[in-house]
Simulated assay, not measured.
Amino acid sequence: MSGIMKSVLPVVMLILVVADQTQVITKTEAQSSTNCAATLGNLNVCAPFLIPGGATPGSECCTALSTVDRDCLCNTLRIASRIPVQCNLPPLTCSGN
């Protein structure tokens, strides 16, 4: 093996390892995102509770909510709160009512 090949080989190996790890992370993030979307979709049973004056959430809603990962729910709420600004509307502010 030439001197150049000996010095380039470790760099190429490092790039391959990093690329492989990035692919694993990307698959994990995609799977996590899919799981988040699926569990959030299950919250449709909670829709009647979300309407002002709506009913108390039933056991189906509570069960669906218990399956949602906390980070998934919090990130979704954070993203949803940014929608008005992205639409050039005033930021969402809510009173304590």
Rank of each mutant, 00 (worst) to 15 (best):
V85I: 10
M13I: 15
N88A: 04
E29N: 13
S59P: 01
G41H: 08
Q86G: 14
I25P: 04
L65S: 09
P48C: 02
N97M: 07
P90Y: 04
F49V: 00
L50Y: 03
C46W: 00
A55W: 00
G41D: 03
L40I: 12
S81N: 11
C36M: 05
L9Q: 14
I15P: 04
C72S: 10
S59W: 00
P57Q: 04
A55C: 00
T39G: 01
Q86C: 03
A47H: 05
L65I: 04
P91G: 09
G41K: 06
I79S: 14
T93E: 09
P91Y: 05
M5L: 14
R78M: 10
C87H: 04
P52Y: 00
A80V: 08
T22V: 11
N35Q: 12
V11P: 10
S2W: 00
L77M: 14
P10F: 08
I15H: 08
Q21P: 02
G96F: 08
R82T: 15
L73R: 06
V24E: 07
S33G: 10
S95I: 04
I79R: 09
C62I: 02
T56F: 00
N97R: 07
T56V: 04
E60W: 03
R78D: 08
N44C: 00
C87L: 13
A19E: 09
L65E: 01
S81K: 15
A55F: 00
N97Y: 07
M13A: 14
L50D: 01
E29A: 10
V8A: 12
P48L: 04
T22P: 02
L89Y: 11
C62K: 11
T28S: 13
P52A: 05
P91N: 10
D20L: 10
M13D: 08
K6N: 07
V12D: 09
L40G: 01
T63F: 00
V12W: 14
L9K: 14
S7Q: 11
A64L: 06
I79F: 13
V17D: 09
C72K: 10
R70W: 01
C62Y: 03
C72L: 12
I15V: 15
L65W: 01
L43A: 05
P52R: 01
T26Q: 14
P90N: 09
T28E: 13
P84A: 04
I83A: 10
I79T: 15
N88D: 12
S7H: 05
M13V: 15
D71M: 10
K27P: 07
L92F: 09
V45I: 04
N88E: 10
T67D: 11
P84W: 11
T76I: 03
D71E: 14
V85W: 06
N88V: 01
L16H: 06
L50P: 03
C46K: 05
G96E: 11
S66R: 03
I79Y: 11
N88Q: 13
A80S: 12
A47N: 06
S2Y: 03
L89C: 11
A47V: 14
L50R: 04
C36T: 08
V68F: 01
